[in-house]
Amino acid sequence: MDHRLQLLTRWVSQFPGFANTVVAPVAGDASFRRYFRVWRSADWREARGVARAHGAQVNQAFIVMDAPPEHEDCLPFVTLAQHWRSQGVKVPAIVQQDLAQGLLLIEDFGDCLLLGQLNTANTDKLYGNALAELLRIQQLPNNPDDPLAPYSNDLLDREMALFRDWLLQRQLGLELNDSDLAMLSNTFTLLRESASAQPTVPVHRDYHSRNLLVTGGDDRPGVIDFQDAVMGPVTYDLVSLLKDCYVQWPDERVQNWMESYRQSSLSAGLHSADAATFRQWFELMGMQRHLKAAGIFARLALRDGKPDYLNDIPRTLGYLSSASGRQPALRPFHDWLLNTVVPAVEVTLGPVPGAHQP
């Protein structure tokens, strides 16, 4: 019996217009959170003030977020949603909340994830919209009452360690000797130092095609899954979007988008980097993120029973291979990746894009 589903059904039914609502599951994310769609029925008029405040209409859909308190904390989501929305970022409105039970009733942005809407005719437009929203996020003032935590060296290191602990050792069963561990440590240090050298801005930390929704009404994407935001490197969210773990674009296209964003973020006063410096930041930041992502995908499969994420590991390794191959200082890592990790991944998970190109 799904006790959490019963709990959230009782909880949402207490609000005007939701007494007899249908509760329908919505695709989840890579966390313990679950999402359900509910509809406000025609008796919403009984709460005219609430309806006006939230733009409610007959049969309007909303989302219930189910975040078990023993696994998830809703407070960062609520705090950030309220602050970012007040500053003009298109995040969902919080309609009702019960933090103790881990339940939120929020605005519904629909099901049109950016990933599923891309085609040859609209990609530049949709990515342009996503980049414009990112620039808006990066210019946000910090909330004086609840400032974002820094993207600390310790956090960067813990994230990269996921690659070693979950992908290499647990998923692939690789035995790492002292030389391997020293090489990984040197690689992590170089990536951490590059990230720490960048100007800091608000960082969503998961800004990609599955966390942006194409919504009606305007061109701006709806932004979700932002509760882990920090103050961190200016290229982090950019590389998360342009070197997306779920979709890959030709390098020339990525570089054009990156340079366009460099110029717009330069004009906004977010950094003073020239093209070569910004690209180097971007490339090394991407490696840090893809080390983390590859480890998380393995952990999701092994610990959380979500094996479909294993399908995204080869693409993520492909990004690592391409980026490390352009870095002379990371030649030991690049060679080891191609000679040791890529073969192990390809035996079990499928071909790694670009790994065998000269």
Rank of each mutant, 00 (worst) to 15 (best):
G173Q: 08
L174G: 13
E175K: 08
L176G: 07
L176V: 10
N177E: 08
D178P: 00
D178C: 02
S179M: 11
D180P: 11
L184V: 11
L184N: 11
S185W: 01
N186C: 08
N186H: 10
N186Y: 01
T187H: 03
L190R: 13
L191M: 01
A195E: 09
A195H: 07
P199S: 00
P199L: 06
P199H: 02
T200V: 13
T200M: 10
T200C: 08
V201A: 02
P202R: 06
V203H: 00
H204G: 09
H208N: 10
S209V: 04
R210H: 04
N211S: 07
T215P: 01
T215M: 05
T215C: 06
G216S: 12
D219C: 05
P221K: 15
V223L: 04
I224Q: 02
A229Q: 04
V230K: 00
V230Y: 01
P233V: 04
Y236L: 14
S240D: 03
L242M: 05
C245Q: 07
Y246A: 08
Y246H: 09
W249C: 01
E252L: 13
E252F: 12
W257P: 03
W257C: 02
Y261R: 09
Y261T: 09
Y261S: 12
Y261E: 03
Q263Y: 00
L266P: 05
S267P: 08
S267I: 07
A268F: 06
L270D: 14
H271W: 07
H271D: 15
H271N: 11
